[in-house]
């Protein structure tokens, strides 16, 4: 809406108001992060008395030492890495192959194959039958309980399908004439041309598996199998339990909790925050691609 017309007074007022609103949005979005970092580096006494806000008070990193010296924390962090790699790998293979099949417009039965996937976006079995299924398949306490039930996200599938459809058909036809079979075409021609979308898919899946907690919470019975999200969940849920009975909130243990919780939150957020600037644009382009063409 760029114009050469001289801005009116009303418009100039709008620009100012707009700037104020957007600044507000930025501040409100960032504030919880700043606050949690400040709390994680503050002295207990200041936190308890409600004095920690934007800056740490009674600066110290003791709580970081506490959390990082807990072997279970690292163990669970390692689990998160392991689960994310396995689940992303499985998801990538299944999503790529199915999206490729669905992108072939001439294929007989294609409408049905698409419908099989899309219907599940709007209707699903629900928590209980899924729980019974995973339990009965004997997947509990293994990485497969996390990887298999979430192996294909239909939204991601449609994004990838849209991308494959946009590739020029001539290339694949030429490759087929040269004697490559379907698998060869997919592996040697299509995938090398699809690095951008594959990277996007890796990120979509990896971030969602990295962040997930409920499957693990449901299907992992032992602490040493938890991902770090469940570690954090148990830390914060434990504390609400304590707060609920009121009096305990004043006890020493609850006081230690306040910084420990903040530190754990900071340490689990850190990897995402570190790579966020680099991955953000892939997400945006992926979402837009899925929406425009899906």
């Amino acid at each position: 809406m760029v114009t050469g017309i001289r801005p009116t007074r009303g418009y100039r007022a709008f620009v100012v108001v707009n700037a104020i609103i957007l600044t507000g949005v930025v501040l409100v979005t960032l504030y919880p992060f700043v606050n949690i970092v400040a709390r994680s580096m503050s002295d207990q006494a200041y936190i308890i008395s409600g004095q920690v806000n934007l800056l740490p008070k009674g600066f110290n990193l003791q709580a970081y030492g506490h959390v990082t010296s807990d072997p279970m924390f690292w163990r669970n962090y390692g689990n998160t890495v392991f689960y994310t790699i396995v689940a992303t790998g499985v998801a990538l293979v299944l999503t790529t192959t199915y999206a490729y099949v669905l992108s072939k417009k001439h294929l007989k039965g294609r409408t049905f194959l698409v419908a099989v996937a899309v219907f599940t976006m709007f209707f699903n079995g629900g928590l209980i039958p899924n729980y019974i299924l995973v339990t009965n398949l004997g997947l509990k306490n293994s990485v497969w309980a996390i990887a298999l039930p979430n192996a294909i996200s239909v939204f991601n599938l449609l994004v990838m399908k849209a991308f494959f459809e946009s590739l020029p058909a001539e290339l694949e036809e030429a490759a087929a004439v040269d004697g490559l079979n379907t698998y060869g075409v997919l592996l040697r021609i299509v995938l090398p041309l699809s690095k951008a979308i594959v990277a996007t898919m890796v990120l979509f899946y990896a971030v969602s598996f990295w962040n997930s907690w409920f499957s693990a919470f449901l299907y992992m019975d032992r602490q040493e199998l938890f991902p770090v999200t469940v570690y954090l969940r148990n830390l914060i849920a434990g504390s609400t339990g304590a707060e609920m009975s009121g009096a305990i909130a004043e006890s020493d243990e609850a006081q230690v909790d306040a910084t420990i919780k903040s530190v754990t939150i900071v340490l689990t957020t850190l990897p995402i925050l570190t790579i966020y600037p680099f991955i953000q644009r892939y997400f945006v382009s992926g979402i837009t691609l899925g929406a425009v063409k899906g």
């Binding site: 962040n211 907690w213 999200t229 919780k261 754990t264 939150i265 995402i272």
Partner: peptide, 13 residues
């Protein structure tokens, strides 16, 4: 991009 667990933790804090 944050895990819902982290969001919940922030809300609680």
């Amino acid at each position: 991009f944050l895990s819902i667990v982290i969001v919940a933790g922030m809300i609680m804090q």
